[in-house]
Amino acid sequence: MPELTFMKATLEGLTEEMELNPRIFVMGEGIGKRGGNFKTTEGLFDRFGAERLCDTPICERGFVGMAAGAAMTGTRPIIDFMFADFIMDSIGEIVNQIAKMQYMSSGRLKMPVLLRGCIGIGHSAATHHSGNYYPLYSHFPGLRVCVPSMAADAKGLLKTALRSDDPVLFLEHKSLLNIKGQVPTGEHLVPFGKAAIVREGRDVTVVALTIMVHKSLQAAEILAKEGLSVEIVDPRTVSPLDIDTILESVHKTGRLIIIDEAFAPCGVGGDIAALVIDRGFDDLDAPIRRLNGTFTPTPYSPPLEAAVVPSVERIAQAIRDLIAE
């Protein structure tokens, strides 16, 4: 299996699907000749032309709203919004139109829209280029929300999204774009709602999201040297959420901590905790813990920025504390 970066893996998946399905087109700012701010569409303009790689004016609400109309009439739009922060201007189109259209039409209309772009804190991007928005989107029925952490999963989930008739938020942490991993060539589909056990362990279950999967893996290495055995679950999609895999892991370990860069209030971790208490209470040997990004807009200066994100050291300490309970 070739080793690819996360971003190249999505580009491979996108290219394969665009070859297969002429109804797929991409809209966004600078995704044409420029090939995307993050090179998400590099080389595709020359291959597929301007109608399928459509550079837009800066009007997120407008082109997200157009994607709804296009999806209702037989094409499959991909909105490449660069930074997830930018589509807050189009939230009404996503929540009120795209998410609700299949239901309101009693399933007669499909809504195959892929909304992709970068999330996450890092690189002194500051607060208009750093948001994590998956808890918000996971709240609404009608949307699928993918948060891959590995290159292979990024390709496999992107391809699944491009064959789904549901609208999908595909959110890529910008610090993951250059990480490398083994990526299957050609057909590789990762189903929605199926978590991955990225490290097996006995003493504690860590549910980690996006970049925090990698930081938790590093923390687990440190803890292994101390004799602690950490299991790490990557949900990969937060809507649908694979709670069964988390419950099975907790049944084995008796302890659960959720590590998430996104804010804690009304977040994915709170929901996982509630579900585990509801369905796996007797398996728990200790309280469920959460470690989240600090509840604040994201600061610019490197020491301030680092202070609001769970670090490997803080993750390791939180796990130690939980095991000591």
Binding site: V64, G65, M66, G69, P77
Partner: peptide, 11 residues
């Protein structure tokens, strides 16, 4: 939104 959707259908 209907304005945007009609443009999207046109696309």
């Amino acid at each position: 939104p209907c304005i945007l959707q009609a443009a999207g259908a046109g696309y």
